[in-house]
Design a protein around this nucleic acid. Structure first.
Length: 714
DNA sequence: TAGTTTTAAGTTTTT
DNA sequence: CTTAAAACTA
């Protein structure tokens, strides 16, 4: 007998691997080593997919000699992009030179360089949904708010599906004939502002690459390896973009989980992942089914719900961590009791196990549900953080400031102009604004030129107001110094810096505390410029009168608004005080609404979060709340949409590592009045024996199996 | 035109 | 019940 036959099977005969590869399991390693045409990794929840992608990036650089600049990795969220970059760099520093971006920021990067091929100037601003809606409001004059919102949704959807106003398939999105006209008018009007919306960040690059074969050929030579994370969330336009940026020699590796596809409403096509092997012939498939996160009973109920879906690539997760306690299903009388239930669970675990607050996450379907938890947690002094609904950049004062800043680089920006031209009141009424905009649109002038054209027709008061306004904008612009002179050069410099992905920003420093802002507000000095771009921001806010306006309109929340403005100025100080710096600043704000973690002071907090926002996260203990018919799933969900809600349940449940709680209320306040509620269908799809039921269940759930909820918190 | 009052509408989910 | 847009008055 030779030595090797005495060895257990688990010790294979192969050369020693470096530790970063040794840490992988067999399938993960196969995915990292894989070479060929293309690879589809079906990665179940908690199966270590980020580890695989980051390791693969490092492996390609280290072992395969792929230049980092030739690697493109695309994600859907900024958080994921950041995490991926950090983890890849940890394995090999050179990974920092690979391009790791979200789809949208990749599109923006592309358009800054090649947008001129579609008549776009390089200083464009990205309109968010709000801006889009106000522009559409101007296009659809006389329509109700709801109609405008619906049209805005449909236009965004059309762009997700890569449909233009003259596309016959547009009827699948909106069959009304006037929709085509509205969409076309909107596109025309948007073009006149010189700006783009979210959908354009994907759609326009595809069009440019298709219409400019020579440039496309050169561009395709750049990336030899393309990886896509969360591929199940890709929409049709993103799929088209993927096809346009690769050629026959490009290696494509996509990672995803069809069971976690939860963005259908946003145009995500599960078909993209289901049909990937057909779309890219020669694709190999690797499944990652070992789950390293959750205890077995948690995976089991997650699976039993999603098993009710048809048309999925069956996957069976294996719980590496083994078995544990059954998930708890709590029947509660109403939402106030639900809040108390959660609070007591958390406090109880704190007392009994010294479990950290940060171990806990409360999941809900809609952002509005966070309110009750916030109020009660404040009362009980339970520290918490709300993820996602931090609408810092949607606040009135912030949007006003951003509009002013936008006007410095985007002089034909209709939306920004209308927003701030008469704020604070300068005697410029709606009628005047409309006339100025119409002249500007009709004669392709910027607003200042349009006013001069109109001078005799505009009242003296309005004219004076407009002059004051333009003067403030000029003062703001004057604070920007251009490096080397022209805007073009500054932008080119930024683009070059981007080529190797070296941030043009300075390293973040400690932010000025809220206290400092408050003190300055009390002194009526209001805002303090720090350095870099903040000089421009502060000048503009002071000169335009916006700072004073918000100081005066801030009677309830103390000086919150001024603090917010100060916070904006602080954020700006990290960027250079140039036009390129300003563009960079605005772009980062539009594409990444999540504010940098400000709670470094106390990270031990309960997380309040929507189900959608939890993707990619994990917590030791998770409470999924409001598991009621009409809320989760929403009542109008049928067929594919109901299947998507099931996947959302799956995503939520698989966030839990050790313990999962589900709560469902018999009554709930909605729109001000109290409505009776019924348990979610999903609860009927789980075997009763897999749950520990507490509280007062409705008759549909047999009572004798239930317990009082004294002992639920073990 | 500015500021206040009245009325209606609305809750998915996100880049 | 809350928030935003229309309507109304000064």
């Amino acid at each position: 007998m030779n030595a090797s036959s005495l060895m257990p099977d688990s010790v294979p005969l192969r050369p020693m691997l470096p530790p970063y590869l040794e840490a992988l399991n067999e399938e993960q390693r196969a995915a990292v080593f894989h070479s060929g045409k293309s690879l589809l990794i079906l990665a179940g929840a908690g199966s270590g997919k980020t580890r695989v992608i980051t390791t693969k990036i490092a492996y390609l650089i280290r072992e395969q000699g792929v230049p980092p600049q030739a690697i493109l990795a695309v994600t859907f969220t900024n958080k994921a992009a950041r995490e991926m970059a950090d983890r890849a760099r940890l394995i090999d520093g050179r990974a920092g030179f690979a391009m790791l971006r979200t789809f949208h920021s990749f599109g923006a990067w592309f358009l800054r360089q090649h947008g001129s091929l579609a008549g776009l100037d390089s200083g464009f601003i990205i309109y968010d949904d709000d801006d889009t809606a106000s522009l559409l409001g101007a296009v659809m004059e006389g329509s109700s708010r709801g109609e405008v919102r619906e049209a805005a949704r449909h236009i965004a959807r059309a762009k997700d599906y890569f449909l233009s106003p003259d596309d016959p398939e547009l009827t699948l999105i909106d069959h009304r004939s006037e929709f085509r006209r509205i969409y076309r008018d909107y596109e025309e009007r948007l073009a006149k502002t010189g700006n783009v919306d979210f959908g354009d960040l994907i759609k326009k690059p595809v069009e440019i690459l298709r219409n400019n074969p020579a440039m496309a050929k050169r561009f395709r030579a750049r990336f030899r390896v393309i990886m896509v994370d969360e591929y199940q969330d890709a929409n049709v336009a993103q799929f088209e973009l993927l096809k346009e940026i690769r050629d026959e020699d490009t290696y494509i590796c996509v990672v995803g989980d069809d069971d976690q596809s939860i963005y259908r409403f946003r145009g995500a096509e599960v078909r993209n992942i289901l049909e990937f092997p057909e779309r890219f012939p020669g694709t190999d498939i690797i499944r990652l089914e070992r789950n390293y996160r959750s205890l077995a009973p948690i995976l089991s109920i997650a699976a039993s719900v999603v098993d009710h879906n048809e048309g999925r690539l069956e996957k069976t997760l294996i719980a590496v961590r083994g078995t544990g306690k059954k998930p708890v299903l709590a029947f509660l009388p109403n939402q106030d009791e639900e809040v108390m239930f959660c609070a007591e669970l958390i406090e109880g675990s704190w007392d009994k196990h010294k479990a950290a607050y940060a171990d806990w996450a409360i999941l809900y379907r809609t952002n509005a549900q966070s309110l009750g938890f916030e109020t009660e947690f404040l009362r009980r002094h339970i520290p918490y953080r709300v993820v996602g609904s931090l609408k810092f950049y949607e606040r009135e004062e912030i949007k006003d400031s951003l509009a002013l800043l936008a006007l410095l680089v985007s002089p034909r920006d209709e939306v920004a102009f209308c927003r701030v031209v008469n704020k604070p009141a300068r005697g410029i009424g709606a009628a005047t604004v409309k006339r100025v905009v119409n002249v500007a649109l009709a004669e392709a002038l910027d607003f200042r030129a349009a006013v001069e054209r109109l001078t005799p027709k505009v009242s003296a008061k309005a004219h004076l107001g407009l002059e004051t306004f333009f003067h403030a904008i000029e003062l703001g612009r004057a604070t920007l110094f251009t490096t080397g002179g022209t805007r073009g050069e500054a932008l080119a410099e930024e683009a070059r810096a981007d080529e190797v992905d070296q941030p043009t920003k300075k390293a973040p420093r400690k932010r000025r505390g809220i206290q400092g802002s408050l003190k300055s507000a009390r002194n009526k000095e209001a805002l303090i410029a720090d350095e870099g771009l903040s000089t421009c921001v502060v000048t503009l806010l002071m000169e335009s009168g916006i700072a004073e306006y918000h100081l005066n309109h801030d009677e309830i929340a103390g000086n919150q608004r001024i603090s917010n403005l100060q916070e904006l100025a602080n954020a700006a100080s990290l960027y250079p005080g140039t036009e390129a710096g300003l563009l960079d600043f605005l772009e980062h704000i539009e594409l990444d609404r999540s504010l940098a973690d400000t709670d470094v002071d106390d990270p031990n907090k309960v997380t309040l979060i929507t189900l959608h926002n939890t993707k990619g996260l994990e917590f030791r203990r998770v409470i999924m709340t409001g598991v009621e018919q009409g809320i989760f799933p929403r009542e109008d969900k049928r067929n594919e949409e109901l299947e998507e809600e099931r996947r959302l349940f799956y995503v939520g449940a698989t966030r839990a590592m050790d313990q999962l709680y589900l709560s469902t209320c018999a009554m709930r306040r909605m729109y001000g009045n109290t409505m009776p509620m019924f348990p979610s269908v999903f609860l009927h799809e789980i075997d009763r024996k897999d749950l520990r039921i507490v509280g007062e269940p409705p008759y549909a759930f047999s009572k004798k199996e239930c317990e009082d909820y004294d002992e639920y918190n073990d």
